[in-house]
Nucleic acid binder design. Structure first.
Ligand SMILES: [Zn+2]
Ligand SMILES: [Zn+2]
Ligand SMILES: [Zn+2]
Ligand SMILES: [Zn+2]
Lengths: 156, 156
DNA sequence: GCAAACCCTGTAGTCGCTACAAGGTCAAGT
DNA sequence: ACTTGACCTTGTAGCGACTACAGGGTTTGC
């Protein structure tokens, strides 16, 4: 199986497969006389493992870890559980901060209903006023502390 | 006001301020004889505007757009509303997919309770089985379609 | 014998910063 | 006058997880 066929079977782009190999996630495949990569069922499994973990939002570093555990099955699995727990709490935090963000955006959106000129747009007014130090609907929707702004979302 | 003072007043890192200037988001400030950037209240407002928008998850491209609107206030504000609407729907989608992700991770986590060896770890077993084409708890928790996996989270 | 479809390597771009390195400037203390 | 340290400057490279070429080689079918 050539790389294009593997890509078709997994739905993964050819360039991404080569990238995973470069990153040491996928073991280097055999090569044909002309240098083409030849894959077998084992590497199909390897790639599907990676894609499955990626679809669970895991980083490539996490996946490398998991693959190492897979290789040495006599180890204790506490580290696996911890890895998943960390992933869960990371995702949970992201959900929470994005939900807050959505509320803030909805409050901001509520400042402009009809279409008129920019000069009268409540959204832009709110944003400008906030930049001048006044409290804003988006960040103080329910009478919370006015400012500071920054750490609403930690990573995007 | 020098760049360090501006950084202190806004909570923004010095390097980030220079980056915003390079990206054309912040207007180039006056310079002292020795080349030091000197800021005034106007640029403090500009930077706070950017930081406020960033804290709402907007991209620098979006902020550039908003700044352009701010400059020409005779335009119709429909584009502003549309920009915010897009931001809302983007964030909403992220929330939804991350919530699904959290459920999937919790289902996976549920496969391993006690600490034992990797060979017996239900989490790793599930991941390996899924990579061999079998349905997995994480992606089919309530009897949904088994596979395909990929587009669970679109951007991270 | 030639075109299309595939494959290869290597490099650079994406986004929003962050972290240097290598140097210049300025105010205070000795 | 000299030194220390805090500040400032530019430029470049790195992060993560790809994506998009450029510039070539190979294979297949007609
Ligand atoms: Zn409006
Ligand atoms: Zn606000
Ligand atoms: Zn376990
Ligand atoms: Zn799954």
């Amino acid at each position: 199986m050539l790389i294009g066929e593997l890509a078709r079977q997994t739905g993964c782009e050819v360039e991404t497969i080569r990238y995973y190999e470069r990153e040491g996630l996928l073991s280097a495949p055999q090569r044909s006389a002309s240098g083409y990569r030849r894959y077998n069922a084992e590497q199909l499994g390897e790639l599907n493992f990676i894609l499955h973990c990626r679809s669970l939002g895991m980083s490539l570093a996490d996946i490398r870890q998991l693959a190492a555990f897979k290789a040495d099955s006599s180890l204790a699995c506490d580290d696996i559980n911890q890895l998943i727990d960390q992933q869960i709490s990371k995702v949970h935090q992201q959900v929470e901060s994005l939900r807050l963000l959505e509320q803030q955006l909805l409050a901001l959106r509520d400042r402009c209903h009809d279409h008129h000129t920019v000069a009268e747009c409540g959204i832009l007014q709110t944003l400008v006023e906030a930049s001048e130090g006044e409290p804003c609907v988006c960040h103080t929707p329910f009478g919370q502390d006015p400012h500071p702004h920054h750490p609403s979302v930690e990573k995007q």
